[in-house]
Computed example of a mutant assay.
Amino acid sequence: MRITRLLLVPVGAILVLGAVLGATEYAAACPSHRTADVPYVPATTPGFDAKYNLLDVYAPKKAGPAAGYPVVLFIHGGSWTSGDKNFYSFIGRRLAKQGVVGVVVSYRLSPKVHVPEQATDCARALAWTVNNIKNYGGDPARVFVMGHSAGGGLAALLATDDTLLARNGLPTNPVRGAILDDPAGLDMYDYLKKMQYPGDEKYLVPFTKDPAVWYENSAIYKIRAGLPPFLFFIGGETYPSISSSSARFRAKLAAVGAPPRYTVLPGKHHIPMVLQLYWQHNIIYQELLKLVGA
């Protein structure tokens, strides 16, 4: 019998695998230039965190088109309680090597803050990107969002929640598309209402005990006509809660006339889905490059 609870694995589980993958990073770094630890909000911002309110920009070294390279902002996972941008340099490098400016962000973690504040951090990082990415060779008119696990849920909010963006300096939603890699949190309202399995209460820490917060921070309830295109990549052996909520998200997009590109990677579990991004010619990058026009 398969366990159907969410069971997200903290990002620390990825670190062991990261040590194995690090040997080839020097070669991948050569075609790109990294600008590290850029604050995306002023230090005077209430709640500013000098460790987490930062992003890295990975730009191709080769001169690009006059308008700039397309841009992908990547948001990491980690159950909303762990992780930061520093582990995911391989994604920034792979994007830059293929003619995309990669922006890899950190955000404040629970229990210090809750998911609404994390969504605010990501929206502010997006606003910084739109306002500044031209200086790094990126095209502010071609900004896309991407995320794995909890980061996928946050990326989906950026693509769907215009009110969130308007509160954070973006009166018009600039997102031109969303790439969701085994996303979690697309419908935490449904998930937390049920509370069916041992251990589910741990998600009340980042999402609070308020059902209104669960609903407001579940992108599935913000689907409407006119959204940017979505790409979904789902592990064939991922958690059933992720595959089922992604399927319902896809159905709602289809109902408003915008069916997403939806790819299941057979045999892949949840954590290995982000590690697919280590390999430059992976199907995720192939579809991503078509979407962004790189």
Rank of each mutant, 00 (worst) to 15 (best):
I3Q: 11
P10E: 12
G18A: 14
G18T: 09
A19W: 06
T24C: 09
S32M: 12
H33M: 11
T35H: 15
A36K: 07
A36G: 13
Y40R: 02
K51N: 14
K51D: 14
A59D: 06
A63W: 04
A63M: 07
P65A: 09
V72W: 09
G83T: 12
R93A: 06
R93E: 12
A96I: 02
A96Y: 08
Q98I: 07
Q98T: 12
V103N: 05
S110T: 10
H114K: 11
V115T: 03
E117V: 13
Q118R: 01
T120S: 13
T120R: 14
L126K: 00
L126P: 01
A127W: 02
N131I: 05
G138Y: 04
D139S: 05
S149W: 09
S149I: 11
A150D: 03
L154Y: 00
L158Y: 04
D161Q: 08
D162K: 03
R167S: 12
R167L: 07
L170T: 10
P174M: 03
P174N: 09
I179W: 01
I179M: 13
D182G: 11
L186P: 00
Q196Y: 09
Q196N: 12
P198M: 11
P198W: 02
K202N: 12
T208C: 15
P211M: 04
W214K: 01
W214R: 04
N217S: 07
I220V: 15
Y221Q: 06
I223G: 04
A225G: 11
A225H: 15
L227E: 05
P228I: 05
P229R: 12
I234R: 03
T238H: 02
S241F: 10
R250Q: 10
V256I: 12
G257K: 14
P259F: 08
H269N: 11
I271T: 07
P272D: 09
Q276R: 11
Q280E: 14
I283P: 02
V292K: 00
A294V: 08
